[in-house]
Simulated scan of single mutants.
Amino acid sequence: MVEIKTPEQIAKMREAGLVVAAMHRACAEAAVPGATTKDLDEVAAKVLAEHGAKPNFLGYGGFPGNICTSVNQVVVHGIPDRETVLSSGDIISIDAGAIVDGWHGDAAITVFVGEGHAPELHELSRVTEESLWAGIAAFRRGSRLVEISRAVEGYVKRQPRPASGKYGIIEDYGGHGIGSQMHMDPHLLNYVDRRRLVGRHNPKLVTGMCLAIEPMLSLGTPRTHVLEDEWTVETDDGSWSSHWEHSVALTERGPLVLTAVDGGRAKLAEYGVTAAPDPLG
């Protein structure tokens, strides 16, 4: 069942979303050469404590971190540790979440560590982030879930090919409903699967729905595997990847990007979409 939120519940999710945004700002500043991924996790824990919020990743299915730290060829679910030391030229996805009064926020950013990154890595991150916003702009009342998938995939396919030959839209992971739990129905693919166009796989988008929209792209294969730690997900061919995510609520006055500081106003305007007013003012 898809959980439908009241305006008051969406306001609580907005509070959680702003905590996530604060976690990202602090972690991005701390993602410097020589830092460990555990250092970033401790920064995230401090932000959570300062806001009186709880982590939604820590302990989830036994996950040992406050955030996921996925470096280079790691797509998602990288575990923070003391052994992984960031170097100039690395890229890292920081996936962060927070709970405020039982309501969840979840978002991810890709951060460039130091200097010396190839232009195709900057383009990889740009295309991934812009495909996220294309998906958010397609989150409209009366439409269907597949239109978000179509918008993400369509944006990626319209971009010039990278030097590696293609962008891989990761197949085994995607977005999800969010609210009183971090992962809820519906599951949201980042591409169109014609086998999922009917029934519960493709619900109508209605006021009160909240989704975590999260495209993941690689510079090669869309296929992945899980390491022996049972969490870390890498690309099969070792190609580097990017991950961007926002939690978004569909309100009577349009989409509200719960984990964006401005509620998504600036980026949605580029797509001709007016973001909903911020319930927190």
Rank of each mutant, 00 (worst) to 15 (best):
G263K: 05
M1S: 13
E270S: 12
D193V: 13
I136N: 10
Y173Q: 08
F112C: 05
K54V: 06
A31Y: 04
D262W: 08
G177N: 04
M13H: 11
L197C: 04
K5T: 05
V32R: 14
E171R: 12
A26W: 00
I148D: 02
I10Y: 06
I213H: 07
V32C: 01
V111K: 01
E130Y: 12
L250Q: 07
D106K: 01
Y173F: 12
E130N: 15
L18Y: 04
N66H: 12
I213D: 04
L132T: 10
N66F: 09
A276L: 09
P162L: 08
D95S: 11
D101M: 02
S149T: 06
A269S: 15
N66W: 04
W244D: 07
V32G: 02
V2F: 04
S131I: 12
E3R: 14
V43I: 15
P203A: 10
A21E: 11
L86Y: 06
S131C: 11
P222L: 05
H183G: 00
E147D: 13
R265F: 02
L219P: 03
C27M: 15
V273Q: 01
M184S: 06
T232V: 10
R126H: 07
A45L: 10
D229V: 09
T6G: 11
T110F: 04
V206K: 08
T251V: 10
G135A: 08
H187Y: 13
S218E: 01
E120N: 13
H24T: 03
S241T: 14
T207V: 15
R196K: 12
A134C: 07
G220Y: 06
A30V: 06
S242W: 02
T37Y: 14
P215M: 12
N190G: 13
E270Q: 14
W231G: 00
E15S: 14
V2H: 07
L189P: 00
N56G: 13
S87A: 11
R82S: 15
A45T: 08
P160I: 09
V152M: 10
G199K: 07
R265Q: 08
T6E: 13
P203V: 10
A118R: 15
N56L: 03
C68R: 04
R150G: 03
A35C: 08
A151T: 03
Y173S: 00
E234W: 00
P55A: 15
Q9P: 05
G52V: 06
P64K: 06
S218F: 02
T274E: 15
I94M: 04
R265Y: 06
A44D: 01
S125N: 15
T259A: 05
A96S: 15
E120H: 14
V206I: 10
S164E: 09
R158T: 09
H122K: 09
E29C: 07
D237M: 03
V127Q: 06
E230P: 00
G281E: 14
E8H: 08
Y173G: 03
T84H: 06
V74R: 13
H24N: 11
Q181C: 05
E234G: 00
S180Y: 02
V100G: 02
D106P: 02
G61R: 05
P255Y: 13
T274V: 12
T128V: 07
R140W: 05
P7K: 14
W240A: 00
I169V: 15
T232I: 10
D236N: 07
A276Y: 03
N56T: 11
R82W: 10
G174T: 05
V2Y: 02
A30R: 09
V192S: 09
R223N: 12
V43R: 02
L18T: 04
D95A: 14
I94K: 01
